[in-house]
Write a protein that binds this DNA or RNA. Structure first.
Length: 486
RNA sequence: GCUCGUGUGGUGUAGCCAGGUCCAUCAUUGCGGGUUUUCAUCCCGUCGACCCGGGUUCGAAUCCCGGCACGAGCACCA
């Protein structure tokens, strides 16, 4: 593979992984199951998943559910996330790990750390230690012997300490330039009697829980993770974990980071905040179309492939960026347009009686360019059609794929089959071939259900469609269609 | 404050490590036009950028130094 250096040629796809051998790459995506996946999570799962695919490697879906009080896990999220992950990836993650199932493993490494003297039990309060950290002072607890540490550790396990009274720290160096790395905390005590873990098997079984940096570091090693790709907010995590790896004599995986992404139209959302807002009734649920969740996006017609293309295009740069939704929409249109059946939805329908029409059925193409999608047959036995009120301002109209008509009051007099002039072309449907339905759309932060007449169809729920002269949408119920985007 | 990171058109992105072939790629958006029995799709055209200042060099978006701006971490959250 003597690839010539090509300048000015757009590199396509994701950049190459460093030190990656095809077939031996192990990546992971590790969400906190304190809610279902949101837009930002999609980046993590898609980028890691794409690399796993590209390198014939493995992707681990890991639930980092080690906090029971600040961001407590949500029981339903475990299943939801697995389904959403599969939807986003287009394949099932190769392995699944739940941190709360692995506490005993983490304990083994704590003991190893204490025995090795590179960790210690610290009885200082968080505030006291903060002062030590700022002033680069060694904490007195650093002086405990390995034996004392092991005893204190037992004390943490058996309930001799209350939450906040003792933590296990990784011994680094209080003189480290980066304050974040100084003797960082590895495990703490949680009151799991008051705040049990939501998983039945776990519940109140453990009092001592690892913190992210310890849990993640040990688990990455146990799973043989070779590459970690995550947000740059976790850069200091990498540095902390590298110090631990050095203590254990392990080799740290290759790392890559991406910057912060904001979507102009959404502003700031956090899983915890959404959870509160849903519980307080501000939103209808996790799939509320106003929320930036995967459930919301898929429910309103965004395709997984569009999301994949979108995130792959953004790549893994460390820049903090703000993207407009238009970019995602444009990807979505590319995915769906060729196969999206055209369908009529009449807003503020006005019934017109046809005059001078003999046929009882009109056949129009399901898709103007994709003839393979066949035709739609509109029944006209009652000779009544619906058009939008707004179109009534014109007294001469062309009903699309039907004919030219002159409008007088509530009658539409047939003029000609072919075009006779440049009169406006409008979409329409008939009384016989339509149903009462709603168009669900978010307007100015409100969910609007606009009643109207929807052309009868046999399309399955979740079929993306193009709503003539309105935009793209998705069949979201028997008599409901949800607007996706223009 | 300390630590770390990032600065390419309106928005993203390629190029930067290995300096010239870069009057800078591609996409998206805007604008203009074309096709079209949808205000869709598609096609064509067009506007538009290397944070600033020095330095090295025949030559700098690319290397060096210094500014500035923005962001993140410094949680017994993930």
């Amino acid at each position: 593979m003597l690839e010539q250096r090509q300048k000015q040629a757009k590199r396509t796809g994701l950049p190459e992984l460093l030190n990656a051998e095809k077939g031996k790459v192990v990546l992971r995506f590790a969400p906190n199951p304190n809610g279902p996946l949101s837009f930002g999570h999609a980046r993590g799962i898609i980028i890691n998943g794409e690399y796993a695919k590209e390198y014939d490697g493995e992707l681990i879906l890991r639930f980092d559910d080690t906090d029971t009080s600040v961001k407590p896990p949500m029981l339903e999220a475990y299943d939801l996330i697995q389904k959403e992950a599969e939807w986003l990836l287009g394949f099932v993650p190769h392995r699944m790990v739940i941190a709360s199932d692995r506490i005993e493993h983490y304990y083994q490494y704590v003991e190893q750390m204490l025995n090795g003297g590179f960790g210690y039990v610290c009885k200082c309060s968080a505030e006291t230690f903060r002062e030590y950290r700022v002033s680069m002072t060694e904490c007195p607890c650093r002086a405990y012997s390995n034996l004392e540490n092991l005893e204190l550790w037992q004390g943490m396990l058996d309930g001799s300490f209350q939450p906040g009274e003792a933590v296990v720290r990784v011994r680094t160096d209080m003189a480290l330039k980066n304050p974040a790395l100084r003797d960082w905390p590895a495990l703490r005590i949680q009151d799991t009697e008051t705040n049990p873990h939501p998983r039945k098997d776990i519940g109140s079984r453990y009092r001592v829980w690892p913190l992210l940096d310890f849990q993640s570091a040990v688990e990455d090693h146990l799973q043989g993770v070779t590459h970690i790709i995550r947000g740059k907010d976790l850069m200091d995590s990498t540095r902390k974990q590298k110090l631990l790896y050095e203590h254990f004599g392990w080799t740290y995986p290759e790392t890559m980071y991406w910057g912060r992404v904001k979507v102009h139209e959404w502003g700031g959302f956090s899983t915890s905040q959404m959870r509160k807002d849903i519980e307080s009734g501000l939103f209808e649920g996790w799939s509320d179309p106003r929320l930036p969740t995967i459930a919301s996006l898929s429910g309103s017609g965004i395709q997984a492939t569009a999301l994949r293309n979108f995130w792959i295009e953004l790549g893994v740069t460390q820049k903090d960026i703000a993207v407009p939704l238009a970019t995602l929409y444009s990807h979505n249109i590319k995915i769906i347009d060729d196969d999206a059946p055209r369908i009529a939805f009449i807003r503020e329908p006005i019934a017109l009686t046809l005059e001078g029409v003999n046929e009882t059925i009109v056949e129009l193409p399901t898709h103007p360019n994709t003839t393979g999608l066949g035709t739609r047959k509109i029944q006209l036995h009652d000779a009544v059609v619906y058009i939008e009120k707004a179109d009534l301002q014109h007294k001469t109209l062309r009903l699309k794929e039907f004919g030219d008509f002159d409008i007088e009051g509530n009658t539409a007099r047939f003029v000609a089959k072919e075009r006779t002039d440049k009169r406006k072309i409008v979409h329409w449907t008939s009384k016989n071939s339509s149903v009462d339905a709603s168009l669900v759309q978010v307007i100015d932060g409100e969910i609007c259900r606009l009643d109207g007449k929807l052309e009868s169809h046999q399309l399955a729920v979740n079929t993306p469609v193009q709503i003539e002269r309105i935009g793209y949408g998705i069949i979201s119920g028997d008599n409901e269609i949800t607007f996706t985007h223009d």
